[in-house]
Design a protein around this nucleic acid. Sequence first.
DNA 1: CGTCGCGTTGTAAACGTTTTCAGGAGGACA
DNA 2: TGTCCTCCTGAAAACGTTTACAACGCGACG
Lengths: 342, 342
Amino acid sequence: MNERKPRRGQGTRTAATIRTVAARAGVSTATVSRVLTGTAPVNEELAERVRTAAAELSYKPNAAARGLVLGTMRSLGILMPDMSNPYFFEVVDEINRAGAAQAFRTLVASSYGDPDAELETAKDLLPQVDGLFLLSSRIPVEGLRTLARAEVPVVLVNRIEVGVDLPMVAVDVFSVTMELCGQLLRQGHRKAVYLSGSPDSWQNRERWRAICTAAAMGLETECVQTDGTIESAYQAVDQALKHQPTALLAFNDLAAIGAVSRLRDLGLEVPASVSVTGFDDIPLARHTEPKLTTILSPTAELGRTAWNRMHALLQGIPSPAAQMLPAHLVIRDSLGPAKPIQ
Amino acid sequence: MNERKPRRGQGTRTAATIRTVAARAGVSTATVSRVLTGTAPVNEELAERVRTAAAELSYKPNAAARGLVLGTMRSLGILMPDMSNPYFFEVVDEINRAGAAQAFRTLVASSYGDPDAELETAKDLLPQVDGLFLLSSRIPVEGLRTLARAEVPVVLVNRIEVGVDLPMVAVDVFSVTMELCGQLLRQGHRKAVYLSGSPDSWQNRERWRAICTAAAMGLETECVQTDGTIESAYQAVDQALKHQPTALLAFNDLAAIGAVSRLRDLGLEVPASVSVTGFDDIPLARHTEPKLTTILSPTAELGRTAWNRMHALLQGIPSPAAQMLPAHLVIRDSLGPAKPIQ
DNA sequence: CGTCGCGTTGTAAACGTTTTCAGGAGGACA
DNA sequence: TGTCCTCCTGAAAACGTTTACAACGCGACG
């Protein structure tokens, strides 16, 4: 079942090692290492011999061996609940880009929605990397606490959890959602339905918390669950309409687009009959019909900030616990005045 | 500048090794290894002692050391030109999912559009992984040939190149684009503009080749370059309209959406004034206004097939050179009869 | 009772690097 | 000429695993 090393058959030429190169160049392995890493001065003639020998054998240093002695593989792990969400990959991209500039590799993993598996995967990943990013983690708090005791830095992205000793970076979802609710109220909306995302995500909890707070200001809200995809939002609209809302607040832009699509299929005008809002301000948002009123979530900045925290931590510089990035309301056309009840 | 190992300060407790565990359990390191990997039978009492010792010390085997002796890090590399394209991540997702089931890690890297850097990155990645996937690679042919001589399998995804000895998996872009052109002709279109993607991508070359072939059947075509994003397609439309086409063939769905958006802003109806088609059939395509006529590209199947090839190769099973996956025309509303020239 | 064999354990040798340490060559200076 | 110092090089010791090999205990069988 679990076949191991191919036992080095005599037919297959085994890859060149540093010893092979040293032999061919007529020097010691130490010298080869020094030439190739440039960590110490070496006579230019020897160096040249080493370089040609290495090239001729097309020698590549073994990463595991180097990692073993150096004590680091120079790799960063990124764990996300869901690889199909393009939103995450702007963050991944930013981390990868910044890390690559410092010769770090990026290891990605996904738990595919299972919070228990997520903790396991994290623990699994931990000994293999120099640092770990947790994106929109659904790991329960006690799990996070154990991760906080890991030997390598762990940075929590898109989640803030008090009482957990981890560096955290997130978008200030609460404030901006409150702002959005205020906007709804000013436009005469009194009854809205929230098309939720995955219920155990921090973003979702924050949004719902803000929406509930807004209830005290006169905005009555119901919650209909989706998983944040276009399709599930499309299907959730019928249920949402039973509450006779004048506005639909979607968890993200994709869900908003799904909702708009269903409303259109039902013959309802947006925003004339029902208003719809999104979240993230993906590039698409300004090109839909109608153009989407949404919330600009600074994804690239989020990734960049997360990397900066990690970078500091890797150098032993302590880092502030929690950091909130501001989001901004983007007013376009999908939010209009509430339709008066006829 | 380039600080090394933190020289094991006396304050920081160094992580537990297999020797620590062995000492605490009162057994040899061999026994610990056998218990933890389950490679040989061990007395149950000892095994239990080892397990509790390992747990108490929260021992994690060092990946580099294990990788060194085992000769593999059990990791797969994925190199793509562009991490911001969500299209790629369906493939990444599929590979990651299948690989994870076999205890493989996924290493991602991006060349950010520079073909020379791409080859360098590939060579760099090669010694660290057990296999490498090249997604929509722009590496020149001679570069690919050197990669074909690597010690680990390399699988080319979304590119077919004759005379290169690499396993290749791709979508049959040519045939389906021809089919699309036939459809255009039947609807009376005689003049179309192709909103291209990145010019050195194989997909783009295939599409353009098909479109040029269709010219012989009476479809006159021009090419306007974009980079396949919504924004760049949006901006390319004005230039495209100078050729007075009755249809716009976009490189992918996002570009199509950008084009539709611009046309709408110009007051032109789709498809009444101009038809627009996409490529990929992303989930969004059926929810736009108008619903997008596009080409279903079997992304998940592509990833799955690529993985299967890799999996076979890893076990030494030779694999056929090139493999084409069929794509399908998806007729929706954005393609209509050509508007007669007034 | 001796011997064989089996099943479990420990010892030690890999794996391929980097790096410490000591040694050697050669120049400067007294 | 002798001493010291600098600069370069090589031998060998790590790094933390896995595993081949030997050793041991113990029951079975002659």
